[in-house]
Design a protein around this nucleic acid. Structure first.
Length: 222
DNA sequence: GGCCAGGACACCA
DNA sequence: TGGTGTCATGGC
């Protein structure tokens, strides 16, 4: 058993970027499209989400803001390829109604809620911890960490201690202080890309370019 | 043909 | 607070 090389979180980001990147940020031509994608991707492959996004883009002529005005049955048909279409249609149309009360002015939402924006997001139907953080990171542009399943698996491997749920890992990362916004945004994309490649039945972590690295307790805060 | 994917909610103790 | 069942499509 060879000695493993310790990593800081930022160095981990750099390694992921070197090996997998650059991958940029969350896909979408507008904040509204990013929001739709973040709901539709819940427990769903991105390829299925893309079909729904194409359907919606065509039906809405590219203007996702008018999504809340689409008749419910029609809307469900449009997003059917990404599954859970009853819950997701309800969640999205309600969320867009909420956004419309702010005229989709994201800066205003940020200012009005400031410290409690995360709990405001969590109070919306269909927004759990991961989706709330994705919205904070890519829509409200806060450099925060998304502790999703792939991140839990990755840091379980790197630290040797199991992170089995969102809050377990999340409380280790209150913020990503060493990261710029763009870096924080790409960090999550890179972690998910890593997960798709190296947490599969065929290829596991030990076969990855990170297998000889470790993240120790003192480095967990960046 | 069963398993699972960039989760969240309802219900229960 | 934490554990379990349910929601649904599409790829393998």
């Amino acid at each position: 058993m060879t000695k493993k090389t310790p990593l800081t979180i930022y160095r981990l980001y750099q390694l992921l970027l070197e090996q997998l990147g650059p991958l940029g940020t969350w896909p979408g031509d507008s904040k509204e499209e990013i929001i739709v994608g973040s709901f539709l991707v819940q427990n769903t492959r991105w390829e299925n989400v893309e079909r729904s996004l194409i359907n919606l883009k065509q039906h809405l002529s590219g203007d996702f803001k008018s999504l809340k005005d689409v008749e419910q049955d029609t809307f469900q048909d449009l997003i059917r390829p990404s599954g859970f279409y009853r819950n997701k249609s309800k969640a999205l149309q309600r969320f867009f109604n909420w956004l419309s009360t702010y005229q989709f002015d994201y800066d205003r939402i940020l200012q009005e809620h400031d410290q409690d924006l995360r709990s405001q997001l969590l109070a919306q139907f269909g927004v759990g911890e991961e989706t709330a953080d994705v919205l904070l990171l890519y829509v409200f542009e806060q450099p925060i960490f998304v502790a999703d399943k792939y991140a839990q698996k990755l840091f379980s491997q790197l630290t040797g201690k199991p992170f089995s749920n969102y809050t377990d890992l999340k409380r280790v990362f209150p913020s990503l202080d060493a990261f710029s916004l763009e870096e924080a945004q790409e960090f999550h994309i890179l972690i998910d890309e890593f997960g798709k490649r190296y947490f599969t039945p065929r290829t596991d972590f030990s076969q990855s370019f990170l297998s000889d690295y470790t993240v120790s307790e003192i480095h967990l805060k960046n």
